[in-house]
Design a protein around this nucleic acid. Structure first.
Length: 637
RNA sequence: GCCCAUGUAGCUCAGUCGGUAGAGCGCUUCCUUGGUAAGGAAGAGGUUCACCAGUUCGAUUCUGGUCAUGGGCUCCA
C-alpha cells in the first residue's frame, strides 16, 4: 500500500506501486493528459517514474512554467533527432532550454536558415508518431561505450560527479544523454518553430570547436505559438532602429560607432523626457548638479575604477597628465560633496545629474540605442545617515513608480544581496541589506531576491519594466554604496558633534536616456502620446494659396507651446493626410477656405475621428491641457 | 573582442558570369487636384557601388585587409 499526499493535503492510497501517470489518471483522464511531470521533494521527475514509498507529490502541467521548460527541452531532443535523420554525421553536444525557447549545439557543417524547413518537416513526423520518452539509467562504462563516437558527450560524461546517476532518454530510435525529465510523448508538442541558426563555441570557448546552434521555440498549444510569432513580427515592425530612421529621430554613423546622433525631432522627445524628469525630481526634493566629462586619472585610481574598469574607459593625455572620460558620474559627485562640510541636518542630500558617460563596449555588443558607447545617465547620489536608508530607498521606489506609470509601464523589483567578492564588514552589509528590505516591505510590492548578485560595494534593487509587448527591460537601479564614502573620506557632523561616515545611494530611473528612448519608441510603436510627439499638430492647407494662412495659425498655436508644422507641399489633401498618419502625428488639421472664413479648425486625430468647425480656443484649451498634464491614452476632445 | 552574414542614390532594394550602374519612394520645377489613406509630367541626385591594397589591359563585381551594421557568442548532459 502506497500513500500519496497531494498539495491540498488529501491522501490517496494505491494497492500496487503506481507510476506518476497512474496517480495523475486517478485524478482524471483529462488531468493526466495535461500533465507533464511530477515533483517529489523538489525534484522534477518523469511521469513514468514509479513511486515505491509514501510521499507527497505535486504535478507539473502544461499550464506551469516548469511544464513549458520541460516541453522545450523535449523539443530540443526532437530537433536533434530530426537533424541526425537528415545529417547522419552530425554530432550532438548540449541542448538546453533558454528564456525564450530552446537550442541545440551541434557539431556539423554550417547550414542556412533555408535548411530549417527540412528539419521542421522531419520534426513533424517525429511529433506525429507520438513517441514516448523512456528513461534508462546506465553505468559510466555503458555510457562511455554508447557515446564512444561523440567526443563531446564523452567529455560531459567524464566530467560528471561520480555520485550522479547517468540517465539516457530514448524516444523512437533516438537516444540522448540527458538528466530529464521529459514530456510523456512527443505528441504533446502542439506548436513549434525553428527560429535561427548561429555559430557557437563548444563550452563558449573561442579556442574550441565551432558548433552550429539551432534555436527553436515550442508550445503546448498552437494558438500560443501563433501569438508568439505575432509578437516577434510586431517587435520587428517596432524596431527602434527602423522607426528612428523613418520618423527622423536619430541616426548612427560609421565615424562614431555606438554614439547616436539625435535629429531635431528626436531632440523634441529627448527634451520632453528631461523636462518631465526635472519636474518630478524637483518635487521629490532633488537638486541638480553637473560634473565634467573628463577627469584626471588620479581620481579614477582613488575611486577604484582604474583598477576595476580600466579596459572600458577612454583616455587621453593633456599636458603630460593622463585623463579618463567618465564611465560613471560618481567620482565627480564625490568631489562635489567634499566642497563643503555637512551637518546631519543637511542629510539626506539628493543630488541629481544627467551625466554623459562613455564606456568602451565590445564592438560586437553594440545595438541601436540599446547598447551604446556614449550615453546619458539620469543619475543621482543620495548621501544619508544609516537610519535614513529605508526611507530614502522608499522615496526612490515611489519616484520610479510615478515616472514609469506616466508611460504606462509596469515593473517588478529584484533585490540583489552580497556577492562572494565584496568589501565592507558583515555589519555594514547587514544594515544596508536590511535597509533595502525594509524599504521594499514599506513599498509593499512583491520582489524577487537574487542571492549574491549585488555589486561588490553594496546591495541593490533592480527595477525591471515591462513594455507593451510584454518584454522586460532592466532600467532603474537603486544601489547602496559603502565603499566610495570610505575611499573619499566623506563625513558629516552628527548630533554628538563627532564625524560620521554617510552612506550613499546611486540610483537611476530612466537608466540610460538613450536606451529608455529606444524602449519607448518600441513600447509606443512610434505613436508617441501627445506630450512626447515631436510634431504635435500638422496643418494641411488644401491648396497653396492657403499656406500663408496656415502659417499664421501655426504661429498662434506655437505661442501655446504646441509643436506644429505646415505641410507646404503641392500635394492633394488625401496624400497629405496619409503622410501625416504614417508619421503618427496626433493632430492633423486641415485648413480650407471654410476654416479661414469661420476662423475654425477641422481636426483629425490618429483614431481616425474628424471634428469640424472647432474654434481655435476650443482647440487650444484641451490640447495644451493634455500636453501639460502629460496624459497618456485619454481622448483630447 | 570572436564566428557568420551584410555594406550600391536621403530611404527600401535590384544589378553587373570583370568592360566605369538601375527601380520605387523621397526631393526640385511645372501642371493638376480642392475636404479625409498614394494625381500627372519633367528633372536633379551615386566625387562609380563603405574604405585600403592586390590580381587584371580593365574591378562596384575576384582575392586579402580595415571599418561599420545585423544575428549569435551566460543558460549546460
Amino acid at each position: 500500500m502506497i500513500n500519496i499526499t497531494f498539495p491540498d493535503n488529501s491522501i490517496k492510497s494505491f494497492e500496487n506501486i503506481p507510476t506518476g501517470m497512474d496517480i495523475a489518471k486517478s485524478i482524471s483522464e483529462g488531468f493526466a493528459r495535461n500533465c507533464v511531470a511530477m515533483k517529489i521533494n523538489d525534484l522534477l521527475l518523469d511521469l513514468s517514474g514509479q513511486i515505491k514509498e509514501d510521499t507527497a507529490i505535486s504535478f507539473i502541467t502544461a499550464n506551469d512554467e516548469e511544464g513549458l521548460d520541460i516541453l522545450r527541452h523535449s523539443s530540443a531532443h526532437v530537433m536533434a533527432e530530426a537533424v541526425l535523420n537528415i545529417y547522419a554525421d552530425a554530432r550532438l553536444t548540449i541542448g538546453p532550454v533558454v528564456e525564450d525557447g530552446f537550442y541545440y549545439d551541434i557539431d556539423m557543417a554550417p547550414i542556412s536558415t533555408d535548411d530549417l524547413g527540412t528539419i521542421e518537416a522531419e520534426m513533424k513526423k517525429i511529433i506525429k508518431a507520438k513517441n514516448t520518452f523512456q528513461r534508462k539509467v546506465v553505468s559510466k562504462e555503458e555510457a562511455l561505450d554508447i557515446f564512444k563516437d561523440n567526443p563531446f558527450k564523452l567529455e560531459i560524461i567524464n566530467e560528471l560527479d561520480e555520485t550522479q546517476e547517468i540517465s539516457l532518454y530514448q524516444n523512437g530510435k533516438f537516444i540522448d544523454l540527458c538528466r530529464g525529465p521529459h514530456i510523456p510523448h512527443t505528441g504533446m508538442i502542439k506548436g513549434f518553430k525553428l527560429l535561427k541558426i548561429s555559430g557557437a563555441y563548444w563550452r563558449a570557448d573561442q579556442t574550441r570547436e565551432q558548433l552550429q546552434r539551432l534555436y527553436g521555440i515550442s508550445f503546448f498549444d498552437k494558438k500560443k505559438l501563433n501569438q508568439y510569432i505575432h509578437m516577434i513580427e510586431e517587435a520587428r515592425k517596432r524596431d527602434h532602429r527602423k522607426l528612428g530612421t523613418r520618423l527622423d529621430l536619430y541616426s548612427f554613423h560609421d565615424e562614431a560607432a555606438g554614439m547616436p546622433f539625435f535629429h531635431a525631432k528626436g531632440m523634441d522627445i529627448w527634451n520632453a523626457l528631461l523636462d518631465y524628469w526635472r519636474e518630478e525630481h524637483k518635487t521629490a526634493g532633488y537638486v541638480e548638479t553637473k560634473t565634467p566629462v573628463m577627469l584626471n586619472r588620479k581620481l579614477w585610481e582613488q575611486s577604484g575604477h582604474w583598477e576595476n574598469y580600466r579596459e572600458n574607459m577612454y583616455t587621453s593625455v593633456i599636458d603630460d597628465e593622463e585623463y579618463a572620460i567618465k564611465p560613471m558620474n560618481c567620482p565627480g559627485g564625490m568631489l562635489l560633496y567634499k566642497t563643503k562640510s555637512y551637518s546631519y541636518r543637511d542629510l539626506p542630500l539628493r543630488a541629481g545629474e544627467v551625466g554623459l558617460v562613455h564606456r568602451h563596449e565590445l564592438s560586437g555588443a553594440l545595438s541601436g540605442l540599446f547598447r551604446v558607447r556614449a550615453f546619458h545617465q539620469d543619475d543621482a547620489h543620495i548621501f544619508m545617515t544609516p537610519d535614513q536608508i529605508d526611507n530614502e530607498v522608499l522615496g526612490v521606489l515611489k519616484l520610479a513608480q510615478r515616472i514609469y506609470s506616466r508611460f504606462g509601464l509596469k515593473f517588478h523589483l529584484e533585490l540583489s544581496t552580497r556577492p562572494k567578492k565584496s568589501i565592507g564588514s558583515d555589519d555594514q552589509w547587514k544594515e544596508a541589506t536590511n535597509g533595502l528590505k525594509a524599504a521594499l516591505e514599506l513599498y509593499g510590492q512583491a520582489y524577487a531576491i537574487n542571492e549574491g548578485d549585488g555589486a561588490f560595494y553594496g546591495p541593490k534593487i533592480d527595477i525591471h519594466i515591462k513594455d507593451a509587448l510584454g518584454r522586460t527591460w532592466q532600467c532603474g537601479t537603486v544601489q547602496l554604496d559603502m565603499a566610495l564614502p570610505e575611499r573619499f573620506d566623506l563625513t558629516y557632523k552628527g548630533q554628538d558633534n563627532e564625524k560620521h561616515r554617510p552612506i550613499m545611494i546611486h540610483r537611476v530611473i530612466y537608466g540610460s536616456l538613450e536606451r529608455f528612448f529606444g524602449i519607448l519608441v518600441e513600447h509606443f510603436a512610434g505613436k508617441f502620446p501627445l506630450w512626447l510627439a515631436p510634431v504635435q499638430a500638422i496643418l494641411l492647407p488644401i491648396n497653396q494659396d492657403l499656406t500663408n494662412y496656415a502659417e499664421t495659425v501655426k504661429t498662434e498655436l506655437e505661442t501655446f507651446q504646441i509643436r506644429c508644422e505646415v505641410d507646404k507641399r503641392s500635394e492633394t489633401l488625401k496624400k497629405k493626410i496619409r503622410d501625416a498618419q504614417l508619421n503618427y502625428i496626433p493632430l492633423i488639421i486641415t485648413i480650407g477656405d471654410k476654416e479661414k472664413e469661420t476662423q475654425t479648425l477641422s481636426v483629425r486625430t490618429l483614431d481616425g475621428k474628424v471634428r469640424m468647425g472647432i474654434s481655435t480656443f476650443d482647440f487650444i484649451a484641451p490640447v495644451s491641457n493634455h500636453i501639460k498634464e502629460r496624459l497618456l491614452d485619454e481622448a483630447i476632445f
